[in-house]
């Protein structure tokens, strides 16, 4: 029988976690509950973060918006603020499972679970998110680009949880795009998932953040591709270059859902298509 600690404030939550770092933080439980009876049996104590008000909700702050870690994907996809400033995050939220999953699954859970296939994670990379982490020592910030450090490993220290994510507004005229390639139209785990954001200055790509999931051990920025097209004019040649570099720098695997060859192929073409879209 698993004992659940159910704190009512962030202070109470980090105190529990400080005293007992073996507590398993949980919120929507959509990743936790599918681990099977054995894994659940081994887990003797969980801490339920759904009752912590500081971790919930979406609010506009100076220069961006902040999304609490236990905010569900349904709340994200419905949020007018998210849809206006970061439509690609709203779009990714619609791709996480079906309606029932979106009602329970949380942004912080997607991050901390740290699957290489997490649909929202490349979006956070492309949007240059900042993670606000809470622990016994208080709050600290981690650039999202430094959050994933290996297969299902994050920069969270024992006893720390994701409190919220800050998304800085993109400058006026910036572009953003998202594409998921799943096994089927809905309720699918990604074979490849790609997000990008950036801006054009004087007809050239001044800035591009390109990120992908399911093509490496963790969600990754495609830095070689970003580097290759910086300063280039958008167009077919630039798009070809981005796709080619992207396919070269990833390390996909064969698994039950797809093959490494296919993932590389689809990534190249999807990146090319998305970079072509910048020109339009």
């Amino acid at each position: 029988m698993i004992a659940a600690v159910r704190p009512r404030s962030l202070d109470e939550a980090v105190r529990h976690l400080g005293e007992d770092p073996a507590l398993v933080p949980t919120a929507g439980c959509t990743d936790l509950m599918v681990r099977g009876p054995e894994a659940l049996h081994r887990m003797d104590r969980v801490i339920d973060l759904l009752g912590v008000p500081e971790l919930r909700g979406i609010r506009e702050v100076e220069g961006g918006i902040e999304i609490g870690s236990t905010t569900s994907f349904s709340e994200i996809r419905r949020s007018a603020a998210v849809r206006a400033a970061f439509p690609i995050l709203a779009e990714a939220a619609t791709m996480v499972g079906g309606w029932q999953i979106q009602n329970r699954a949380t942004l912080g859970g997607n991050m901390a679970n740290a699957s290489p296939a997490g649909d929202s994670l490349p979006v956070l990379l492309a949007l240059d998110a900042v993670v606000v982490v809470a622990g016994a020592q208080g709050l600290r910030e981690i650039p999202y680009a430094d959050f994933h450090i290996g297969y299902r490993r994050t920069a969270l220290r024992p006893g720390e949880i994701v409190a919220r994510v800050r998304l800085p507004y993109l400058p006026a005229g910036a572009f953003q795009a998202f594409r998921k390639v799943g096994t089927r139209e809905a309720q699918a785990i990604s074979k490849v998932v790609v997000a990008l954001a950036g801006r054009i200055e004087e007809g050239r790509i001044a800035e591009l953040r390109l990120a992908a999931g399911s093509v490496a051990a963790m969600p990754v920025r495609l830095r070689a591709a970003e580097e290759a097209v910086r300063g280039q004019a958008p167009g077919p040649e630039t798009a070809d270059l981005a796709g080619r570099e992207a396919a070269r720098e990833v390390t996909p695997i064969d698994d039950v859902r797809s093959t490494a060859d296919y993932r590389r192929f689809a990534l190249e073409r999807v990146v090319r298509r998305m970079v072509m879209g910048i020109a339009g």
């Binding site: 698993i2 659940a4 159910r6 509950m33 309606w99 029932q100 009602n103 329970r104």
Partner: peptide
């Protein structure tokens, strides 16, 4: 709408 197989009773 919620999947009751994924909701712990607590």
């Amino acid at each position: 709408p919620t999947l009751s197989c994924l909701v712990p009773l607590f």
